[in-house]
Amino acid sequence: MTSVLKTFLRNRKAAIGLAIVIAYVIVAIAAPLIAHYEPLARVGRPHQAPSADHWLGTTRMGRDVFSQLIYGTRNSLMVGVLAGFIVTAIGTTIGITAAYFGGLIDDVLNFLTNVVLVLPQLPLLLVLAAFLGQVSPLAIALIIGLTSWAWGARVTRAQALSLKTRDYIQAAEMIGEPSWRMILVEMLPNLLSIIGFNFIGSVIFTIITQATLEFLGLGSPLTLSWGTMLYNAQNASAIIVGAWWEVLAPCAAIVLIGVGLSLMNFGVDEIANPRMRSLGQVAKALRLERRLSRQRMQEAK
């Protein structure tokens, strides 16, 4: 585990992305210590511009935008991580099971995966959320988690099928290893990069989707997240009246966490994919060669 973490941190993209994500987690945990005001308390004038008292200004109701942003990080991260776990657990279970057992089990699970895969995801989420009414963050996480696992299952199945043909897997089968041990001990550790890639991608998708659903008014107005901040800013016509900070703050938070998670995803891909690693080494060698060439030209002058 330590060697895996060291390899991960040696990758510049993964290290920067992890630092951004850890910063968000710290903000979410320490929200009461960081926020200056209660997020739903009226503490200033309506649409007050950013100042020393209110770093990111206030809303139409006179609420501190910075405090709302800090507390909103909790809900948005919670929904993203929970839905990511659900998507990864379902996709990994179905993918490995289908690949290992094959036959009828593979046909049934593959058919189910294909059915879920061809469903238009965002329209389906909109219909489900509209049918349920204004849903809580937990319900949004469950809806996204239970409808977004198909891609991860397909990728996991493909990778598990290639693992199944490896010599050590076949040797373990020949000596009579039980199925549960074959899956959990022999195959699952070799799929960690795919599982990590699936989890991180699911968290990104969930955070953006949650913000979209809540911006459209399908979330609960009693909860505080980046999506409800955008919804309230839209209802208050924040852009029209010049209160740009109400929109900029949650949008910047979504973009930055997306950048951090994407960098982690790229890092995982480069670490797990030998071709990506070799391309990175070639690019690094080319940059070094250009730098040396410029130095030689300057010395020649």
Rank of each mutant, 00 (worst) to 15 (best):
S3K: 14
F8M: 15
F8K: 09
N11F: 04
A15M: 08
I20K: 09
I22Q: 05
A23K: 00
I29Y: 12
I29C: 06
A30T: 14
A31L: 12
A35W: 00
E38G: 14
E38N: 11
P39S: 04
V43E: 01
P46R: 08
D53P: 02
L56S: 02
G57I: 01
M61Y: 09
G84A: 15
I86F: 07
G91P: 05
A99E: 06
T113D: 04
T113E: 12
N114C: 07
V115M: 04
L122Y: 13
L128S: 06
L128N: 02
S136K: 12
P137Q: 01
I143M: 14
I144T: 02
T147Q: 11
S148A: 15
V155W: 04
T156P: 00
T156N: 04
A160K: 00
A160W: 02
T165V: 14
D167H: 02
I175G: 10
S179F: 14
S179M: 11
W180V: 13
I204W: 08
F205Q: 05
Q210W: 05
E214H: 03
G219W: 00
G219R: 07
S220M: 07
P221T: 07
L222W: 03
L224S: 00
M229D: 01
N232Q: 11
S237L: 14
A238C: 04
W245Y: 06
A252Q: 12
I254L: 15
E270C: 09
N273A: 14
M276G: 15
K284Y: 13
L288I: 05
